[in-house]
Design a protein around this nucleic acid. Sequence first.
DNA 1: ACGTGTGAAGTCGTTCACAGCG
DNA 2: CGCTGTGAACGACTTCACACGT
Lengths: 223, 223
Amino acid sequence: MESSNHEAIPEPVVRRLSLYLRQLEIFKLSGKLTISSKSLGQSLNLTDAQVRKDLTWFGQFGRAGIGYKVDDLISRVRRILGTDTARNVLLVGAGNLGRALCAYKGFEEKGFKIAAVFDRDAISISKARDGESAKSDALQTVPVQPMSQLKETVLRLDIHLAILAVPADQAQDVADDLVDAGISGILNFAPVLLRVPKRVAVNAVDLAVELEQLLFQVNFSRG
Amino acid sequence: MESSNHEAIPEPVVRRLSLYLRQLEIFKLSGKLTISSKSLGQSLNLTDAQVRKDLTWFGQFGRAGIGYKVDDLISRVRRILGTDTARNVLLVGAGNLGRALCAYKGFEEKGFKIAAVFDRDAISISKARDGESAKSDALQTVPVQPMSQLKETVLRLDIHLAILAVPADQAQDVADDLVDAGISGILNFAPVLLRVPKRVAVNAVDLAVELEQLLFQVNFSRG
DNA sequence: ACGTGTGAAGTCGTTCACAGCG
DNA sequence: CGCTGTGAACGACTTCACACGT
């Protein structure tokens, strides 16, 4: 549909595409109707050539001498990434991190709705309900369900993506359950490498690793 | 000290180093005294050659015919990454995400201690104190301070790293404050690109982008 | 003149394959 | 023989430089 050579798109290109979109929305707010690869690149510390090369993986969106139409490019990039239509996702793990993710505004701004929350045991479930009084906590509107209702909910709400925010020692088991329930993508916050069938995609975020990487940058790459 | 050619270490190598460490600690728990590049690689879906090449950036840690001594490699990698000694970090932003990060166990396991928490206004401060009753919330032990106390606290607690978990529209201002207070590294959770002096390192984690990337993987890279 | 799209060149990172040690 | 360390071959990504459209 959007691209002619699906398989071959380099990962770094897709990552930058998300950043282009983020930046384009800022340019849109500031009233710019058109944007050149040069200024878009500068706003992200990238070269203009890089921006153009990345975009031409998906088509020819620009006009020579003018640049790219901001509105148009936003909707094209959204369509490429798949965020042009809203979709339900589920969350497993109603601990501190899970509850924060549940309330995170950034997801809904991109069209992701946390439509179901699961947790292993009733302790977390009640804790999640009692503890928090802030109005922004989505756990007030989305009840925490036991894992036994996973499969049924996935089907009913047409969910394809899961956010995994459980302790490391439960992560693989829960991942197995998610796979079994028919999920096709997992955003994994547990510090373990998940083993899943090839049909399932995994994107891992290890918060402690990110801090560790920062520390190394500070100690070496600089003075 | 550890390496002879500091400047040149590729970023991907450093990222994998963190994963090696994570995996080595698992091997250690399971009682293994020695590990080959092959099994370490397999546990992370990497080739043995990759593991060896990565490690030799920092020295020759292995023994031909045997492999690497698990204990030894752990402490060497920790020293390389800088997590062999504990250190204080600070957090700005006592919203949902900030509070979750504050309570996150993974940081302290790597020797990071969130020694100070800051927030812009008193509303968040009181909210942070009242809202949460779970025993694991570090905000009970670490009081939330106003930004005016930033510089003094950084000096007093010898803090070099900051975690930034404020809304996008405040992120650059807070980053400026952090730079001004003498911070040398920022872990940025706000969905904006921070402009900082060259002496300051930034590592950015955009949660919505991570979910977006997963969606793309699901839609294309697979059937 | 400005700015895109793109082959060609260049750079960076990974994989290969083997010498050499335990 | 198993396994590391490493140059050499390979492949992937980025930058260059320019033809062409506005």
